[in-house]
Design a protein around this nucleic acid. Structure first.
Lengths: 199, 199
DNA sequence: TTCCTATGTGAATTGATATTCACTATACAT
DNA sequence: ATGTATAGTGAATATCAATTCACATAGGAA
């Protein structure tokens, strides 16, 4: 009825946001076009004015996630040029991203998203490797500067680095937010610091 | 028609196995009672002779996963009494379990499994913490024996330990098995060895 | 103001899936 | 051998989700 008419770009943004928010609160399984529509304030069929299919919506959500992750890298690189500092800050931003937007990780690590969709599975792989690539650039920089020990390759270190946060995030999520992710991160950083950073 | 009649215990086992195998090959989303039935060699309604609902099937799958994980701990504890050795072997068994039974991890870390099921989410949490508990016992033993440095608590170390394998498993899975999980594990073990094990 | 197009609506379609039930057949105990 | 409890069948039901389409309308361009 008296529903405001907004152009596709705005609606697409809203749809992605609402989709992500629904995933955060109820998981991917419960994500339906009808629910998204209701949350946006539209009727289900209206979504199809802005996306050809549910698959397209999911792809857009993935694009958004990728952007958020890579933005974090850009932000820390702007804030400081010191490699260890960059890593430390990235850790903080990553945790913050997880806490504020649980949906992101329910999506990225739910195989429901890409089972039966080779292209999408590939996209997820791409997101992870791109992010890892950026992190390992920072680590490589640190190694060249003599701040990080060079007997392990940057990719392995960056994967270790992210693994630990990621898994903590899963535990945090599964424990209904009881697991203290911040404290865990601090302890891990300490070990990380002592074992990889040249003194 | 000429379908053999087997007793409930056998059928329940078959159903759990086939369910897990389907999850491994097609993901949780594609897991339907009909598919399970076909794979077992039954008609869909027959499943209900052995499980009250699909939820019960999923619970049984979770029980099986828990058993497999804890079995691994028992096995390594039987094989050797040396803490570092136990950890090293557990790592190997864990990777083997992942490789041979990809379904296990598609299940444990798919929130689709427990979204909207607080009890099941709790069960997943329980599985993880129980396993972590066992691992940290081994680590605690190593610390008491002076083999593992004591400035970090066992739980943090065990979580780090498992995080790294787990995440590697995800990457392995998302990359369509291209990522070399064994090599990665070796490198990680090396770092682990150098930073946590007292020389 | 008047069109025209992009956007929104509601009903209908299609397809999948969990679950139930009345019925049948098998294996095992007697 | 026979009967009974247990396991298997196939059809039916109910629900739910994605998608389509004919129709309605808002809002900017003319």
């Amino acid at each position: 009825m008296g529903t405001e008419k907004l152009n596709t770009e705005i609606r697409q943004d809203q749809i992605v946001q609402m989709a992500l928010s629904l995933v955060a609160s109820h998981g991917l399984k419960e994500l339906s076009m009808a629910r998204i529509a209701r949350k946006v304030g539209l009727v289900p069929s209206a979504i199809y004015r802005h996306f050809k299919s549910k698959d397209e919506v999911l792809d857009a959500v993935l694009d958004y996630i990728q952007r958020r992750l890579l933005d974090n890298v850009a932000i820390v690189c702007n804030e400081t040029s010191e490699s260890i500092d960059r890593l430390r800050r990235l850790l903080t931003y990553h945790i913050k991203l997880i806490r504020e937007n649980q949906g992101i990780f329910r999506v990225v690590f739910s195989d429901e998203l890409y089972s039966g969709h080779p292209e999408r599975k590939n996209k997820v792989y791409e997101i992870i490797t791109k992010y890892l690539g950026k992190v390992s650039e920072i680590i490589g920089q640190g190694q060249r500067e003599g701040k990080i020990c060079i007997d392990t390759d940057p990719i392995t270190i960056s994967l270790m680095f992210l693994s630990i946060i990621q898994q903590a995030a899963i535990l945090w999520h599964v424990s209904n937010e009881k697991f203290d992710i911040t404290k865990h991160t601090e302890r891990v950083w300490k070990i990380f610091n002592e074992s990889l950073i040249t003194k």
